[in-house]
Design a protein around this nucleic acid. Sequence first.
DNA 1: AAAAAACTAAACCGCTCAGTTTATATTGTG
DNA 2: CACAATATAAACTGAGCGGTTTAGTTTTTT
Lengths: 211, 211
Amino acid sequence: MGHMDIQTETTPTGRKVSQVLEGARTVFLRDGFEGASVDDIARQAGVSKATLYNYFPDKRILFMEVAKAECVRQETATDEMIAMNAAPEKALRTAAERMMRLFLSPFGRNVFRICVAESDRFPGLGKEFWESGPELMRTKMIAYFRQAIDRGELAIDDCDLAADQFAELCKADLFPKLMFGIQDRFSDEEIARVADGAVATFMARYGTAQK
Amino acid sequence: MGHMDIQTETTPTGRKVSQVLEGARTVFLRDGFEGASVDDIARQAGVSKATLYNYFPDKRILFMEVAKAECVRQETATDEMIAMNAAPEKALRTAAERMMRLFLSPFGRNVFRICVAESDRFPGLGKEFWESGPELMRTKMIAYFRQAIDRGELAIDDCDLAADQFAELCKADLFPKLMFGIQDRFSDEEIARVADGAVATFMARYGTAQK
DNA sequence: AAAAAACTAAACCGCTCAGTTTATATTGTG
DNA sequence: CACAATATAAACTGAGCGGTTTAGTTTTTT
């Protein structure tokens, strides 16, 4: 052994291990599971194939390790997305833009693609991503709704549906275009248009102010 | 030659050819492009591999042929989705349910998956699917909006955005769950809840009736 | 400096798969 | 019936890939 491995972890750690994970992340997100070759990953990581296999006994395990790491990355990304005490228009508008920037980013796009493409080769993968991303955001939104309802700023019967609707409204136009490969770069104006529209539509339905 | 091939088509026709296309469709939609093996397709089609290669000189060409056929299938599926003369609540409610049943069906799901997964192996593929499906539907919706606006039943500034929002509202909750592999069968109640919600939210924003 | 541990390049194994070939059988036509 | 076109099964080729092995080099520890 090196010098001291205090943690008898299931997941290995160390400088080379990080290199491998970093390289694997790059290649898996770019090429998917089948599309990624282990030789590619090793090259990208600047590590020999033997070393890679020394730490991760097979490709699937390496993939799941990367996926696990991406989940926590997502979790931190959804942190602080909504200002719980702000008024709805302001809070929702900010949340809309942040959500959009996340799932329109190369990161969000690739994560989604991987989930869609590999979710039946890795059952439970999609669910884990969903729980550490969209589902988490949804929970936060609902918590916000409840507060705003108490303050008399919103009137919502089905909070779950409202949260899902808001999230979907933020995907209008741009998300399909991204997924179908029609467009992959979006201007601030395009984002603003959709975000404004999402908030306006949402508030028309659930706001308490007169029309 | 057989007896007479009047059409010097780019695309071959004939009984065996149809068998091949049918088998290819089944296997490609199930397994994706890489996941599908040509032997599988030949077996599924009840045709020898040599015959298959006689008509379609390589796997990519066969795939694109299947894709082309799926596009026209989609086009016919989006036909008659919206009753142009009905009042908004009624017309939209019907359209919502029809759209949902389409993209929640195994067909819609698989088409979407293929697009997402293969759209950079086949540039332009996603665009073609989009144009013969979502985009077509969008055009129809906008045409309906214009009529309803003329009748004073709707008030919409940005019809493009409104159409996209409506489509997205129809995806609330269910579509992400489908894509992430969390759920793949949806009850009438689940569909009704989302469809009703979509119409209600849309009308709250764009309807002309008082609140 | 010596011993032990970690790392590397490269060859290799077994397998799958796209695409071809061959030799044979089936089908349709004059 | 005979002939030509079409189809078939099965074997084969060549390439790529996951994973292993080997033999040697670098790094770390004592």
